[in-house]
Design a protein around this nucleic acid. Structure first.
Lengths: 189, 189
DNA sequence: GTGATTTCTTGATTGTAATCAAGTGCGACA
DNA sequence: TGTCGCACTTGATTACAATCAAGAAATCAC
């Protein structure tokens, strides 16, 4: 009930770690609760590790002009981080916010490096990074499809998101106004 | 005149490698020439390493509908790769094309892993990855600024690109038609 | 160097999503 | 349970970049 087994299962999906190695890892994680709207990362803060979502959901967003632009969603049983800030160790230009009340387990970059130094197999954790990138498909969708196509694509790729997250956030993620999203949905019945 | 010293200089910018370590790395690189329009990576091909650009330039693009969408430019003295394909070892959804005749030096993922296993310091090469991501700022620009602002931003961030690359490609990168870019430029004099 | 092909410019028109606005509904919270 | 505030819907209008088109300029191939 602590979440340790979920973390281990996730690690096993990238590499056949031994039970001992898994424990080396989970011994270093720190558990946290966040309430809806709490921020995990604020702009100008340096990301110091990655977090596994045990329950709940998050979004990465950016302030541009003074609009919020939602770039990515994360839900339970996935790792999350601000990849840019993590890799460069420069201040983040993004925010990560809990959409729902959430439970997470974090590990610092320093601890990951220590694990990698002592056990080369932990190098395989780099495989986790791919889920943290912004996929080129997202750019393609945003910049070359119309609102109806964008929404249809989301329904195919992430049908659960549509009912789980407020439409404002979905609209923001799809690069359209809430009004437009509302009309897209009306059109589809 | 082989390019080895440029590679070493680039490696030193991420970590204080010894001369011996640098040579371990450069002993493994393979040199190649590409002509304008040659492809380094095609769609559906798995990326098997990273390449350092000695001379020339490249673009990452994607086919969507049947338009080409330019996502990133790379110029000499930088590393390039299709990060998604590299991290997931899944077929690429993108193309990498030489914009000019170019010289590159490549190293395979397998060789990088070997180096990391034998010398933990090579783990620092992960720092190179940050230049390969799609920055969130790009998304913000594309999806919340008008054509004039987008072009002005490019002039600030990458003034050299504007004269070096064909306007079609610049327009494609900025998410607008060549006609629109032409008008933006006319407007700015 | 000449012709051929592609890129760039400029103009006219259109389509589409943003904006502005008002009303409805629902959920959070006291 | 009631009410307050925020999210969502729907309508009318506007703004802006895409599209279509044609001509000029630049680049490429032979």
């Amino acid at each position: 009930m602590t979440g340790v087994s979920e973390i281990k299962r996730s690690l096993l999906s990238v590499h056949q770690f031994s039970e001992e190695q898994l424990s080396l890892f989970t011994d270093r994680v720190i558990f946290n609760s966040l309430k809806k709207k709490d921020l995990l990362i604020k702009e100008n803060q340096v990301s110091d590790g990655i977090a596994f979502i045990l329950t709940g959901s998050f979004r990465v967003f950016k302030k541009s002009n003074n609009k919020e632009l939602t770039i990515k969603f994360f839900v339970e049983n996935n790792w999350m981080a601000d990849l840019e800030s993590l890799l460069t160790q420069q201040p983040s230009k993004n925010y990560i916010e809990a959409i729902e009340d959430s439970e997470i387990a974090s590990i610092t970059l320093r601890d990951i490096h220590m694990l990698m130094d002592s056990h080369p197999c932990f190098r395989m954790l780099n495989g986790l990074l791919s889920d943290l990138t912004i996929p080129t498909s997202y750019i393609a969708t945003i910049s070359s499809k119309n609102p109806d196509e964008r929404y249809k694509e989301l329904l195919l790729k992430h049908p659960q998101w549509v009912n789980r997250f407020p439409q404002m956030l979905i609209a923001s993620y799809l690069g359209m106004t809430p009004e437009t999203l509302s009309r897209v949905r009306a059109r589809m019945k």
